[in-house]
């Protein structure tokens, strides 16, 4: 996107910039305050000046020392990694089935899979909670990973990508005697690498930032994810705002880093959902 077709008159342009700058400030200024406060000693926290005069790492040290944020981060990292891999594999298999075969009930099953996207977690909460109790999955990684492994949206996107691979590639593989499994992993998947990467990142963000289910599943500190740890910190160290802001930074940094590394892909994936629909 270089030069767009529509160019409003100077008056409107000024107003537009003014509004946009205000909006951007509403994003950037709080972030600056959070970052600055995380480095402040308790005395300085209540001062209006966003940056500390005497910066300290004390707040961060405390998170890992007195509070178990190391464990929380580890829980988040591990469950996110395992979950994303699982989600991708299962979505790839399903997308492949929908894209490469026409079989009885295909359309109905497709609708069934997509319809599941519309079911909010609060609607399935009660029986799932009871199920987790019965399986004794509270405070386990399993509880955070397995119920989420089916990601209809990922399957939907991957199916689109599989459909856009030229048939010749599939045909060539068949000529060579490749079965469906080989074709999937050696022809189809390598061809949509970037798309898979982008979807993986979006799935990772969903997992890292999740609140509802991890909150329900965690009954003791050692099983908390970083988001739940942050939430509990509010009560555990009530009034320790320096520490709270440090926790906020910790909980956001990985995703922000991921974004700046893979910016283009992420935005395209998020947004393509809006245009295609």
């Amino acid at each position: 996107m270089s030069e767009a077709a529509f160019r409003p008159s100077p008056g409107w342009r000024f107003a537009g910039h003014a509004v946009l700058v205000a909006l951007c400030l509403s994003v950037v200024v709080p972030m600056a305050i959070v970052l600055g406060t995380s480095f402040k000693v308790p005395n300085e926290v209540y001062r209006l000046q966003p940056w500390p005069d005497a910066p300290t790492m004390e707040n961060y040290a405390r998170l890992f020392g007195e509070r178990a944020f190391g464990t929380y981060v580890w829980n988040s990292v591990a469950t996110t990694a395992l979950r994303v891999v699982g989600e991708l594999v299962i979505a790839l298999l399903a997308a492949y089935a929908f894209a490469r075969w026409s079989f009885r009930g295909r359309d109905a099953l497709f609708v069934l899979v997509l319809a599941a996207m519309m079911v909010p977690p609060q609607l399935t909460m009660i029986p799932l909670y009871l199920l987790m109790a019965e399986l004794d999955w509270f405070d386990t990684w399993t509880a955070l990973i397995v119920p989420h492994l089916a990601m209809p949206y990922a399957a939907f996107l991957l199916r689109q990508h599989f459909l856009s691979i030229p048939r010749e590639l599939y045909e060539a593989a068949r000529m060579d005697g490749a079965g469906s499994w080989t074709t999937l992993w050696h022809v189809a998947v390598p061809n949509i690498g970037p798309a898979i990467a982008a979807i993986a990142i979006v799935l990772a963000m969903d997992s890292w930032n999740e609140y509802f289910w991890p909150m329900l599943m965690s009954t003791e500190p050692s099983s908390r994810t970083v988001q739940i740890g942050l939430r509990e910190f509010v009560e555990e160290e009530f009034g320790n705002y320096g520490g709270l802001m440090a926790g906020a930074v910790l909980a956001s940094l990985p995703m922000l880093l991921l974004f700046f590394l893979f910016q283009r892909r992420i935005v395209d994936t998020f947004v393509s959902s809006g245009v295609k629909g």
Partner: peptide
């Protein structure tokens, strides 16, 4: 990109 937990806490 940031979770609503972070937003609420901030």
């Amino acid at each position: 990109l940031i979770s609503f937990v972070v937003v609420s806490v901030v």
